[in-house]
């Protein structure tokens, strides 16, 4: 019984982190329809930014998430302006551009930082929730997930720029005919998506140990969450995060940790077949 409770509690806390991981991808893949093979690289850039700035300035890693957002967002903007905007008509070229970008990022980190694994030590200790030990840092991460998720949803649904961004992949021509510069919107959306990936990197830096190529496993989670939740459906993604995290926890505890990825894959497959528009049936096809 106690174990079950622990599983639920840690699954819930984990879900928040997974939700943050999925936000940037949900904008870039779900809204902009760019299969972002560089999502993992963007995440890990955020993690390393936090690591080095924390080491050299001693600033709180939570504060540094803002810096991660600015830095990774700016890099995303440069990537979009320098390359991606020329590839709107050729997804294959774009795919290679993004894969290329992420290998450059990984190689650059390797060259600058070596292959050492890095950890950002956050203290704060643990507190008891329902009699279970919970790290305070996990709670802060949970708060960040709520905050970033809410802001993203508000931005996309209740500002005119956000609404226009959701229309970009529907019909670029129609958007232009409304007097909207669709390229500029795509740039903005890509930048925000990259910034959110950077934020996710900052959040995970506080609780995992990472190396130059650790981005991949987090990107896989993010893809699973976005597909399960429905492309571009941010509420669906929240539910999907919870399902992914608790499934992972349950499978590990009551079955075998070696089966996590298999289970995730089957789950995604099942949803793709039964609910191609995601759990809530509202995602883009």
């Amino acid at each position: 019984m106690n174990l079950l409770l622990q599983v639920v509690v840690s699954g819930t806390l984990l879900a928040a982190v997974y939700y943050v991981l999925s936000l940037g991808l949900n904008i870039i893949l779900g809204v902009l329809d760019i299969v972002n093979f560089a999502h993992g690289a963007m995440i890990i850039m955020g993690s390393y930014t936090t690591f080095y700035l924390h080491r050299y300035t001693g600033l709180s890693p939570w504060l540094l998430i803002l810096v991660d957002m600015v830095l990774v967002g700016a890099l995303g903007a440069v990537l979009y302006l320098a390359y991606l905007r020329f590839t709107v008509e050729s997804p294959l070229v774009r795919m290679f551009a993004l894969i290329g970008f992420s290998s450059v990022v990984v190689a650059a980190i390797l060259a600058m930082s070596g292959s050492n694994f890095r950890t950002v030590q956050v203290g704060y200790g643990t507190i008891d929730i329902l009699g279970l030990p919970v790290r305070v840092s996990q709670l802060i991460a949970f708060g960040f997930a709520l905050l970033l998720g809410t802001l993203t949803i508000l931005w996309l649904n209740h500002t005119k720029v956000g609404v226009a961004i959701r229309a970009v992949t529907d019909d670029r021509v129609a958007l232009r005919l409304c007097g909207v510069n669709d390229q500029r919107l795509s740039l903005l959306a890509f930048t925000v998506g990259a910034a959110l990936a950077g934020a996710a990197g900052g959040v995970i830096a506080t609780y995992v140990t990472f190396g130059p190529d650790s981005g991949l496993s987090f990107a896989i989670i993010a893809f699973a969450v976005v597909i399960l939740g429905g492309l571009g459906d941010f509420a669906g993604a929240a539910i999907a995060s919870f399902i992914v995290a608790t499934t992972q926890t349950f499978v590990t505890v009551y079955w075998s940790s070696a089966l996590i990825n298999t289970t995730l894959f089957l789950l995604v497959l099942l949803v793709l077949v039964l609910r191609p528009r995601g759990l809530l049936g509202r995602g883009r096809l």
Binding site: L3, Q6, V7, S10, G11, L13, L14, V17, Y18, Y207, V208, S214, L216, S217, F218, I221, A245, Q248, T249, F250, T252, V253, Y254, S256, S257, A258, I260, N261
Partner: peptide, 20 residues
Amino acid sequence: KEFFTPGLTEGESLALKVLS
């Protein structure tokens, strides 16, 4: 006896299982 796929994204659930 627990064999996991390298590249863990979290350690809590594995720890819960092992410690159970």
